[in-house]
Design a protein around this nucleic acid. Sequence first.
DNA 1: AAATGTGATCTAGATCACATTT
DNA 2: AAATGTGATCTAGATCACATTT
Lengths: 244, 244
Amino acid sequence: MHISCAHCGLQRICFPKSLSSNEIAQLDQIVSSHPAIPRGSQLFSAGDAADFLYALKSGVVKLSRFDQAGNEIIHAFYLPGDVLGMEALDSPVYPFDAITLDNCTFCRIHRDDLETLAQKIPTLNRQILSMLAQDLRLEREHFDQLLNKTAEERVAAFVLSIANRFHARGLDSTSFRLPILHREVATYLGLTPETFSRVLNRFQNNGWLSWRRKQVDILDAEALQALAEGCAQPECHYRARKRG
Amino acid sequence: MHISCAHCGLQRICFPKSLSSNEIAQLDQIVSSHPAIPRGSQLFSAGDAADFLYALKSGVVKLSRFDQAGNEIIHAFYLPGDVLGMEALDSPVYPFDAITLDNCTFCRIHRDDLETLAQKIPTLNRQILSMLAQDLRLEREHFDQLLNKTAEERVAAFVLSIANRFHARGLDSTSFRLPILHREVATYLGLTPETFSRVLNRFQNNGWLSWRRKQVDILDAEALQALAEGCAQPECHYRARKRG
DNA sequence: AAATGTGATCTAGATCACATTT
DNA sequence: AAATGTGATCTAGATCACATTT
């Protein structure tokens, strides 16, 4: 049973973006809502036939895989309103696992239905391209967060990036629950859990951030921003020369 | 003056992919070919109005920007047949600089013309989506090449990745000219030129690879492959435990 | 039981300072 | 003149080994 996209709070960032009410009605006919699935479920697995796109309504999902050495690589965290499976639109199978990190509800669209409808509705076609471009932008942002960045810069940039995405959804971007394990954030940032823990400790001692269990409170966004943007701290010397 | 895409050797990976000859004729009407531009030119710059897509016919182009600390970040190298500007399809401006690393020839399409034509030709629309998905895949591959990889693993994976792309174009993938400075490859791989130079030296001493000036010769692809895939060397100990 | 925190030790690769090559 | 190569030194963060928390 599908509740119309017209009544969904996420329509501004999901498929219905910029569609007329008539067009949304057409979209409703190919979208199906699904009941909540528990934490740890696989929305899809690497190698599965990529028949569907998934629009996340609530919860958080990680997009990940294991490399040949057995290390987990996490490419993305999806928040409500995000659509999963875009990268497989031109492939027979999904290239990654999509694993729920929380109770999740979602809508599902068969990609053939979507393609047919997008041929009739140029605005929808543009929105599909835009969502794929968004995935590319997020991946490059992720890359930039890691390349030549210290552990502190990575964590600061990550927290702000998540906060911005909460903000874009009209949610509290200063104090929020983030159902991602510290270990998973560390993996996403290319750090060990030990290093991640030590960075959180320093941020806490500086009065910049409180992140206990799954509750995140940003106490000094400006300090985090300054750190994420470069090396704002005086004691950052070894790498400072090229950066000045 | 545009030479028809029907006679272009790159039609199997560029826009005309899977189009009928009738459809290619329609594509020809919105494509314009351009004379060679020299090394160091900007095809477009970050912040420019993103009105055009560029299909590279010959030469190599880097997609890059400078971060707030003044360090160059290189996100991609484009080879003949690749299309630049896809990531800006839903944005008013290009987010990166596209700089030629060699004499380059290219075709150009106005994105409005392309969008109009893609509405009429579903196969073309699918090809556009596919090229954007390809950019995303390459970016994730780039990411995977860096995350938790040693300098040697990065360089081995890079050389093989480039070789694969030459192979996909029907070119010699064992011995080829690559007009990218060592310094730029190092930047792309998140390494210093010094470290890159030392890695090349070791590969040369092992008889795996010769890369002098801009001439690349792969002498032992299997050894490089084993290295890129994990830690194949016995002397790799410190990081080996988790990987075994 | 798994996640997280903490201290001691270790190392890959950055940095620095030049030399050499093109 | 800029790119590349080479040796000496330095350090951020990984690894290891546990303790503590949930």
